[in-house]
C-alpha cells in the first residue's frame, strides 16, 4: 500500500495537470452550453416557423447523436475537410454543443413554466417582447432551470472523461497511467474520489446560485444567511430541512 501512495505522490503533478484539463473542459463546455442553451431555448419558442425549425433541428441533432462520435467527427473528420482544430477546442465544442442541446430544452421548459399571469401583466404594461423576456420572464425562469442545469453540469464533468480518445491528457488519462504503477483498485479508487469531490464542489456552487435566485424571487433566505453558521431557522426546519 505504501508503494501505492509513493506512486501517487510521484504521479501527483501529472494528475494535477490532468485535473486542470478536466476543469477547463468542464467550464469551457459549460459556458458554451449555456450560451447555446439560451439561444436555442429562446429560438425554439419563436413564432417564425423557419427560425424555430432551425433551432429544433439543431437541438434534435446534437441531442440525438453520440458525444464520442461528435468528438471523433470534430477531431478526425474536420481536418480532412481542411478544418484543423486543437484537441481542446474539439472537446469544448463537442461538450458544449451536446449539452447545450439538452439544456436548451431545460431553458425552453422553464420559460414556459413561468405563470401565464406574469406574461399577461407584461402585456398589460405594454412591455416589448425583449423587455418582457429579459426583465420579467427570464429572471423567474432562471430560478426554475438551475436544478436541471446542475444535473447536466455534473453529467458533463463526468462526460469529459472520454476526451482521452482525442489525445487530451485529462484526469482519467493520468489515473489510467497511475494504474500501471499501482493496481486497478487503487488507481480507479483515486479517480472516483477526485471526480466525486469535483462534482460535489460544483453541486455546492450551483446550490448557492439556486438559493440566491430563489431569494431574489422572495422565496427562502439569502445566500449569506444560508452560509452563516447560525442554527437553521424554523421556516427551513418546517420545510423538512431542505434549505
Amino acid at each position: 500500500m505504501e508503494a501505492n501512495f509513493a506512486a501517487l505522490a510521484e504521479a501527483a503533478p501529472r494528475i494535477w495537470e490532468g485535473l486542470g484539463i478536466t476543469l477547463l473542459l468542464t467550464l469551457g463546455g459549460a459556458l458554451l452550453a449555456i450560451v447555446i442553451a439560451v439561444v436555442l431555448g429562446l429560438g425554439a419558442r419563436l413564432n417564425n416557423v423557419f427560425l424555430r425549425g432551425i433551432c429544433r433541428v439543431f437541438i434534435e441533432f446534437f441531442r440525438g447523436t453520440s458525444l464520442v462520435v461528435q468528438l471523433f467527427f470534430f477531431f478526425f473528420v474536420l481536418p480532412q475537410l481542411g478544418v484543423d482544430l486543437p484537441a481542446m477546442v474539439c472537446g469544448i465544442l463537442g461538450l458544449g454543443l451536446n449539452y447545450g442541446a439538452y439544456c436548451a430544452e431545460v431553458v425552453r421548459g422553464s420559460i414556459n413554466s413561468v405563470p401565464t399571469g406574469q406574461w399577461e401583466a407584461t402585456t398589460a404594461l405594454s412591455l416589448s417582447k425583449a423587455q418582457r423576456m429579459r426583465r420579467i420572464i427570464f429572471p423567474q425562469a432562471w430560478a426554475l432551470m438551475i436544478p436541471s442545469l446542475t444535473n447536466y453540469l455534473i453529467h458533463m464533468l463526468k462526460g469529459t472523461a472520454i476526451v482521452s480518445f482525442i489525445t487530451l491528457a485529462d484526469l482519467t488519462f493520468h489515473t489510467e497511467q497511475l494504474r500501471q504503477d499501482t493496481n486497478t483498485f487503487f488507481a480507479y479508487g483515486v479517480s472516483l474520489v477526485i471526480y466525486f469531490v469535483l462534482a460535489y464542489i460544483l453541486t455546492l456552487m450551483m446550490k448557492g446560485l439556486e438559493v440566491q435566485a430563489k431569494h431574489k424571487l422572495g422565496r427562502g433566505e439569502s445566500l449569506r444567511d444560508t452560509l452563516s453558521l447560525k442554527a437553521p431557522d424554523t421556516a427551513v426546519a418546517a420545510e423538512g430541512g431542505k434549505g
Binding site: G117, Q118, A121, A124, L125, I136, Q140, K216
Partner: peptide, 17 residues
C-alpha cells in the same frame, strides 16, 4: 394604442423578481 389601457387582474400578477 395598448399603452392607453391598463388592467388589474384577479391574481394581482405582481413581478416577484
Amino acid at each position: 394604442i395598448r399603452k392607453r389601457i391598463g388592467m388589474v387582474f384577479q391574481q394581482f400578477n405582481l413581478f416577484p423578481n
